[in-house]
């Protein structure tokens, strides 16, 4: 009898190319959180002030971390929603309309059902999530049933959403003043407001869906090769529909946190979410062609974009330079963090 001995694989070197690319977004984030304090240190040095690098930094402080996280939470929810879609190799550009509609419907329902979380008005929260799901579902239907590319279908649905939100509000703002609801922003546990923990919980939920459910694995299957997934008996249409619906729920979550942060729901609540969420997903290392990346990448991506936005003001970069610098940093981050060698062409 021959003895079968398990062969250990040859030890991979610690810094493989795969590993570097996998961790590159995080490295970019760490680099950025060190480089902004450096500029701060340099500025104080020129003015002849005593300044210990990092220790005395205003940027590298808990208070500022809380500010960056507050700014990040609504965008993170929206970006996670779109991550699922991008994992499938599709794209969803309906977030601005969906966020506006959910925010406005939430605010109307919340005010008319009592105006405080300590009444039936709490039902406005599940209502907003349902509205998000419905909008996402319609979006998915337009995409898969009418066979319109997701790019165009979702963009169009986004416009419909913005128009609908405008119809509801007539251009007015709705203030949500309830102290209990606003405690999302005003009450802090361990230096961070509650909304940060809510976002963290939702991120964990998204990670669970992505890695521990069939649906999550199907997203990767569709993104990795749709024909193959289809040939293996996967109902691709159904996966897509569920993906868009799920994205809608996360957009609604983003809308709730956006209202929690500003205390105002209006048609403009959804503004700018398209740019920041798509940028964050890509910067985080999720590939636009699908199948690669995930929730943690998106978390890092959102943080990168918000750290840049905050850092540029904190180091006193002139406003006219900020947009240019943001663009350059995004390109650098994408170059570092996505594996483009495996792609034969980029469209």
């Amino acid at each position: 009898m021959t003895e079968v001995v398990a062969q250990t694989a040859p030890r991979a070197s610690f810094l493989t190319r795969d590993r570097i690319i996998k961790w590159a977004p995080l490295l970019v984030l760490v680099f950025l959180t060190l480089v902004f304090p450096f500029f701060e240190w340099l500025e104080d040095l020129q003015e002849g002030k005593q300044h210990l690098f990092l220790v005395d930094s205003r940027f590298f402080s808990i208070r500022n971390a809380a500010r960056i996280l507050i700014a990040s939470t609504p965008a993170l929810m929206v970006a996670i929603g779109v991550t699922f879609i991008i994992l499938m190799g599709s794209i969803d550009l309906s977030m601005e309309g969906t966020v506006s509609v959910c925010a406005v419907i939430f605010a109307f329902a919340f005010i008319s059902w009592g105006g405080t979380l300590a009444s039936w008005a709490w039902l406005a929260i599940p209502l907003a999530l349902v509205v998000g799901a419905v909008l996402g579902f319609i979006n998915g239907l337009v995409h898969v049933r009418l066979k319109i590319p997701s790019f165009m279908a979702s963009l169009a649905m986004g416009f419909v959403g913005t128009g609908f939100a405008l119809l509801l509000t007539g251009g007015d703002r709705i203030r949500v003043e309830d102290e209990i609801f606003r405690s999302l922003l005003t009450v802090r546990w361990f230096n961070f407001p509650i909304m940060v923990y809510v976002a963290l919980a939702m991120t964990l939920l998204a990670w669970f869906i992505q890695s521990r459910t069939t649906l999550g694995r199907n997203f990767y299957a569709v993104g990795g090769g749709e024909e193959l997934a289809h040939a293996s008996g996967l109902n691709v249409t159904r996966v897509r529909l569920m993906g868009f619906t799920l994205a809608g729920v996360f957009f609604a979550m983003g809308a709730l946190l956006a209202v929690g942060r500003i205390g105002i729901a209006e048609t403009a609540t959804g503004n700018n979410f398209m740019f920041i969420s798509i940028t964050a997903v890509v910067v985080g290392g999720t590939a636009l062609w699908g199948g690669i990346g995930g929730v943690w990448n998106t978390l890092v991506g959102v943080l990168i974009v918000n750290v840049i936005n905050n850092g540029m003001v904190v180091i006193g970069l002139p406003s006219y330079a900020q947009d240019g610098v943001l663009g350059l940093l995004v390109i650098i981050a994408v170059v570092l963090s996505t594996d483009r060698k495996s792609v034969s062409f980029v469209k």
Binding site: R67, A268, N310, V313
Partner: peptide
């Protein structure tokens, strides 16, 4: 101390003001 464009936008203004607070306290 500083003047930055907030593009008439509530959320952008919110973000810039937070950053101002970090810089100037």
């Amino acid at each position: 101390l500083d003047a930055q464009p907030a593009d008439w936008d509530t959320q952008k203004a919110n973000q810039i003001m937070s950053s101002f607070i970090t810089r100037y306290g």
